[in-house]
């Protein structure tokens, strides 16, 4: 039980680091979905089933969908990788 919890924490933190460091916007959006899904699994392991289901459907599925929809509607120039 313990090691499952710790195992889930790894993609949670690594994915979060990747979200803020990766250069491509689309990759960052998908990685945010990965973080949300890891959080859903963590809720599942902790025993908060209601929260786990809601996080998987709303936090991971729909939020990513909304991000992708709005990414598609951005001007071409805005989608490009930032150079700062």
């Amino acid at each position: 039980m313990t090691w499952i919890i710790l195992l889930v924490c790894i993609p949670l933190v690594v994915g979060a680091v990747a979200v803020v460091t990766v250069r491509d916007l689309l990759s960052a959006i998908i990685l945010e979905g990965v973080v949300s899904l890891s959080a859903a699994v963590l809720f599942l392991v902790l025993g908060a089933l209601d929260v786990a289901i809601t996080q998987a459907v709303v936090g991971c599925g729909l939020t990513t969908a909304v991000f992708l929809y709005s990414w598609r509607r951005l001007p071409e120039k805005a989608r490009e990788v930032s150079h700062d």
């Binding site: 209601d50 289901i53 709303v58 729909l62």
Partner: peptide
């Protein structure tokens, strides 16, 4: 577990 919020999201 579940209920109106995830269920409604599935319907959506």
């Amino acid at each position: 577990p579940g209920g109106g919020f995830p269920g409604g999201a599935l319907l959506a």
